[in-house]
Design a protein around this nucleic acid. Structure first.
Lengths: 247, 247
DNA sequence: CGGTCACTTGATCGTCTTCAATACCAGTGG
DNA sequence: CCACTGGTATTGAAGACGATCAAGTGACCG
């Protein structure tokens, strides 16, 4: 069961984002914004509303009218779908630089909830659409981002449909070790901002199975667990082999 | 284990597609091509190579250089990923109108194999890229298609991660009943061009479990099975409820 | 007719879930 | 300082769902 959503509204910061804010934004390099040069950034900044959300705050609800796009600039959000009886599948974790809100119909196909203190820019769908028409390069960038998501989704389907619990956890940890680009260096110490319940709902398991798998990996000396939220990857090669390599 | 791939090369038809072919193409209305008007269709037709593939022929292989895009115009292909030990996850079935080949890196992230007699148009990545720059509307359309794929992928993650065998099969059958647009009328009699093995690898199950689930649905009078490839949906409402409705 | 292939059905097995108890930690108030 | 609480993680025992192993059926085809 998902935790009840606290009745806190997201805090809309007094000012819309100025160009100043955009140029220093942590997400500037990786997000859609990278397709637009500093000169024209004003147009983008003009339609962006910077907002904060406290942990537990849901700011996209599946089925609601999809009239905004979102750009995460700090923190982590979970994206998920629910079944009528409450079963939850987390389809992804979105951090700084992630673009949210692409919808096939006129309503969102998933929910999004902050697990951290999250900052994001909100754009009206209509206004961004107009901007995209003026800056085709941004649309190209958006297609790139959507393609990345699609590739990630296909990997996740392989994981959910065909991997064992141990393989799933190994895949998850390995993926976490190269957050910030598959080309980047692999970090060997990772922190997990999400709970075991979130991990379980992401991997299609229960919290108990996730916990047991953690213990097993530790017993096999593939990882260390300084704390529940911290993992040291002791044998990345073996973890990758367990994950199914070509991930 | 996937069936061994027959050593048949796809047949490249003698002519590249003429505009004539494009205007009468069955995929014209639903695919990327819909974003380009008849007048400019020549440009698209000029770079398209029409090809056929026999059942069992793999024409995209995961990991290979991604230098083509594909547009299915007839038949059905399976898209899948493999684990080193041969376990297979089918990520989707692509029929007429489907656009394939979006890749995050410079190599394909999945394989594609014909299960029917398939016809498709092949485009060089480089040339299509150029065309997209000239016709932003096509890129917009492509983003729409990618978004649809993404939404479908998220549904499939929910299915693979959280639904029971019976729910999975029901979801599959219901989805098949509205092939050709979620807005279209639901057909109550559907044909399954794929084998039980394909269905199993799509739903994250085994063929035995798929078979048993079929039998169960029939016993419960939710479906009829005139033949292994034909299904009559007798109680669409109950099937949808079983599938988790809001699909 | 024998052979293959796809599907179905049955019996047994194993992985993961479910149910339950315990550990752990931070925050609160006596 | 320490008992109490609530939330999160770990561990154990029992159970269930789907996988595996195995046999049987029917269609198609040489």
């Amino acid at each position: 069961m998902p935790a009840p959503v606290p009745l806190i509204q997201p805090v809309v910061l007094p000012t819309t984002a100025g160009v100043q804010q955009c140029t220093v934004c942590g997400a500037r390099a990786t997000s859609v914004c990278s397709a637009i040069d500093d000169e024209h950034l004003t147009r983008l900044a003009a339609i962006a509303v910077t907002t904060e959300a406290e942990p537990g705050k849901a700011f996209i609800e599946e089925g609601e009218a999809a009239d905004s796009f979102f750009n995460i600039t700090a923190g982590t959000v979970i994206l998920f779908k629910l079944l009528p009886d409450g079963r939850r599948q987390i389809t992804g974790f979105a951090g700084a630089g992630h673009f949210l809100g692409l919808a096939a119909s006129d309503s969102y196909a998933f929910s999004a909830e902050a697990i951290d203190k999250v900052r994001y820019c909100r754009f009206s769908r209509r206004r961004l659409r107009k901007l995209l028409d003026d800056f085709p390069a941004m649309e190209t960038r958006l297609l790139e981002l959507a393609t990345n998501e699609l590739v990630a989704a296909q990997k996740q389907m392989l994981l959910l449909g065909r991997k064992t619990a141990l393989e799933r956890l190994a895949s998850f940890l390995v993926a976490r070790s190269r957050l910030g680009g598959p080309r980047g260096p692999r970090r060997t110490r990772i922190s997990l901002p999400m709970t075991r319940s979130d991990i379980a709902d992401y991997l299609g398991l229960t919290i108990e199975t996730v916990s047991r798998a953690m213990t097993k990996l530790r017993a096999d000396k593939l990882i260390e667990l300084p704390g529940p939220q911290d993992v040291v990857l002791r044998d990345l090669a073996k973890l990758e082999r367990l994950a199914g390599a070509l991930t």
